[in-house]
Design a binder for these strands. Structure first.
Lengths: 135, 135
DNA sequence: ATAAATGATACCAATATGGTGTCTTTTGTC
DNA sequence: GACAAAAGACACCATATTGGTATCATTTAT
């Protein structure tokens, strides 16, 4: 059971790397030298981030990518939603009718509260956190 | 992005239903009348719960299932681990080397803390919570 | 013109998910 | 003992998701 898929992970680390480069653009070739990822897969991820307006892209020689928004504005939560779809932990719970002997219960309530709290926390972690210990 | 798969959900609701029956055994036929689930799938889930020693099973006419442990001892966390494998939210994060410009970072730390807190919470929710509002 | 870069998009293998079906074994009842 | 009602074991299957590859088109600096 995992919360983050590989593309989310790659995206976070890639954004961290681009953020570290400040205003300079970074190419896919640069990135795969630094990060250990398959090129084609990384290109797909970068395109996604670019389409979602988190990256500015520049074509042609000397081109590459740079951040379109500040690192502290890119949250883990948004990465999850982009690469793993809408965040709905409890999608399945009590879809159907529960056991008819059970009229109300505190389970769903509690689960919903956990979800809310988790979302708040995932929104509080940003790409900025990747840069904190930078030399 | 979902946290609970269908079998986890079914398992939780089924256990709630069995718990509500107190010491009496409940058959698959009983359960599918009350809960809206495909019979074969439910049987597979019940077998799993039985193998994991959460249910006692009785074969033959008049047989069925009953809880092997107290409802307050069966957590959502254990259901997730049984049906969805080991709980490791951060499996992928920083598997490979992160961008070399980033030596240490607070991201993984923060994520790990979130994971810990989430586990504690999921362990605090039990089948008992399903019975709370019971008539 | 050419090479360096991204954009769009189609494809693919492996795995997970959600579910079904069949045959075996156990056990209570007539 | 025969039979039916239950669970046990397990093989199978369709679909979706995940993780990844490959190809061609477009843009742009030199």
């Amino acid at each position: 059971m995992k919360l983050l898929t590989r593309d989310t992970d790659y995206a976070v680390r890639t954004l961290g790397c681009i953020a570290a480069a400040k205003e300079n653009t970074v190419t896919v070739t640069d990135l795969i030298k630094k990060l250990n990822m398959p090129k084609s897969f990384l290109r797909k991820i970068l395109q996604m981030l670019s389409n979602k307006k988190l990256l500015k892209s520049f074509k042609g020689t000397g081109g590459g990518f740079s951040l379109a928004v500040k690192p502290e504005e890119i949250t883990i939560f948004s990465m999850i939603e982009i690469f793993q779809g809408p965040f709905q932990l409890m999608e399945h719970v009590f879809r159907g009718k529960a056991c008819p002997e059970i009229k109300t219960c505190s389970l769903k309530e509690k689960m919903d509260r956990i979800e809310e709290e988790l979302i708040i926390k995932l929104k509080s972690i940003t790409i900025m956190d990747l840069l904190k210990g930078q030399k």
